[in-house]
Amino acid sequence: MVSAPFQVSTKQDRDVDIILFSGRMDANSSPEGENAIQSLVRSGRTKIVVNASGLSYISSSGLRVLLAGLKQARQAGGDLRLACLQPQVRDVIAMTGFNRIFTIFEQEEQAVGSFFS
């Protein structure tokens, strides 16, 4: 099986930014995800949803990127929320206790909507 490369795309819904991660987020590809989150935070956009529906694999490098983004978004009064976690990503997040510090939703729409409730 050929594994999919890491890809990032972004979109907006009102003042919430949605980052779609797909493929594999390993030590080599994580900086690309970091750039996507950092460019939002630096421009003052700190209501962020990471849609991981296409993300099949994450390692501690990817977790480090998500954690840094979460800290920065919250310090700026926003948040970084997760949606659509696939089995490996969900398990790794549980194994590291990240499920207790991130707000996690089944669907992207729920995660976006949570910023307005």
Binding site: S59, R64, V92, M95, T96
Partner: peptide, 10 residues
């Protein structure tokens, strides 16, 4: 939260 040590924990 620190990320150090997560790799070996995993």
């Amino acid at each position: 939260r620190e990320v150090g040590g997560l790799g070996i924990h995993l």
